[in-house]
């Protein structure tokens, strides 16, 4: 049984999709500014806070891997600088963390900027202090969210070492569950457990061997079924998981699905619903999928080239 296109075609497609998505993000980021005196409401789908963090994530990975061309590297740097500026050079994140010491999103967002070499001195001091508090570590949250915080702490350079094997074992994947009982939300959570354990593909070797073997068999099935129902955003997330494995297992089919769905201007729709022609609405609706495409293209290309991420983990 052959796997469709040869690996070289996968890489070419991955690179093209990621590069075009990055340019679309750059062309449209002006639609996502943070309002002055903003109150962050996570249930507000139009909130600018989360997208800015996601844009910083995508940019930080493009810079970390260093496999993009000069134009894409400049675009990534510009996007990070834009997001950092929107956060008032980090003051917004710092003030939010001061106001809500038990909330994890300021740390998680800040970590993307740290990955890109940006620091905020008062934020650093605050995070070191908070990381020493038992209350902070005792916050009740879903296992994949706990992995997210652990990875953000690792990237931010906080000294406290989480028990990674225990955290991974506690996730849905850690139970190596029946692969035929998975739904859309569980699939998203599953992908993020992998992202955080491996720091977005920087360290495939950190994935526990049982999880790696499990994904080797089942990941192609999930790509297949969600590609069939045009869940492009989730397919992209699953392809990032593929790039987080020491040896990718997915064939070209998922990438071809995304390539066929991407518009000439770089917009990759999140699903098969009609795309709103208003560019501001389109940006809010499909910004996440663009971030996913940039990350998927970048990490896939980098792992296949065997490049070591610039940042090392403590």
């Amino acid at each position: 049984m052959t796997g469709g296109l040869v690996r070289g075609d996968v890489l070419k497609t991955a690179h093209t999709i990621g590069s075009r998505a990055l340019r679309w993000l750059q062309d449209n980021a002006r639609f996502g500014p943070l309002p002055t005196h903003t109150v962050v409401d996570f249930n507000d789908r139009d909130s600018a806070y989360k997208p800015l963090g996601e844009i910083a994530l995508a940019g930080s990975l493009v810079l970390r891997e260093g496999v993009a061309g000069p134009g894409d590297l400049a675009a990534a740097r510009a996007l990070i600088d834009y997001a950092w500026g929107q956060f008032r050079n980090g003051d917004f994140l710092y003030e939010r963390q001061v106001r809500h010491p038990l909330m994890t999103d300021p740390l998680e967002t800040y970590a993307h900027f740290v990955r890109a070499g940006i620091r905020h001195e008062r934020m650093d001091r605050l995070l070191v202090h908070l990381s020493e508090l038992r209350s902070v570590h005792a916050i009740e949250m879903m296992p994949n969210r706990r992995l997210a915080v652990a990875n953000a702490s690792r990237v931010a350079g906080l000294a406290r070492r989480p028990d990674w094997p225990a955290l991974a074992a506690d996730s849905w994947l850690g139970r190596t569950p029946e692969p035929w009982v998975i739904d859309w939300m569980t699939a998203y959570n599953m992908t993020h457990a992998v992202f955080h354990i491996t720091d977005w593909g920087a360290h495939p070797e950190l994935l526990p061997v049982e999880i790696r073997d499990y994904l080797r068999v089942w990941l192609p099935v999930w790509v297949d079924v969600w590609a069939e129902v045009a869940q492009y955003d989730l397919v992209g997330e699953l392809l990032i998981v593929d790039a987080c494995l020491a040896e990718p297992v997915c064939d070209a089919q998922g990438w071809q699905t995304l390539a066929a769905a991407q518009r000439p201007n770089g917009l990759l729709p999140r699903d098969a619903d009609p795309v709103d022609e208003d560019p501001e609405r389109a940006f809010k609706d499909h910004e996440h999928t663009a971030v996913v495409a940039v990350v998927a293209g970048t990490v896939t290309l980098a792992r296949s080239l065997g490049t070591a991420p610039a940042a090392t983990l403590g």
């Binding site: 068999v217 089942w218 297949d224």
Partner: peptide, 12 residues
């Protein structure tokens, strides 16, 4: 491949 086929059919 058989196992993948079963899971694909289950999810469909």
């Amino acid at each position: 491949s058989l196992a993948r086929g079963v899971v694909r059919a289950m999810l469909r």
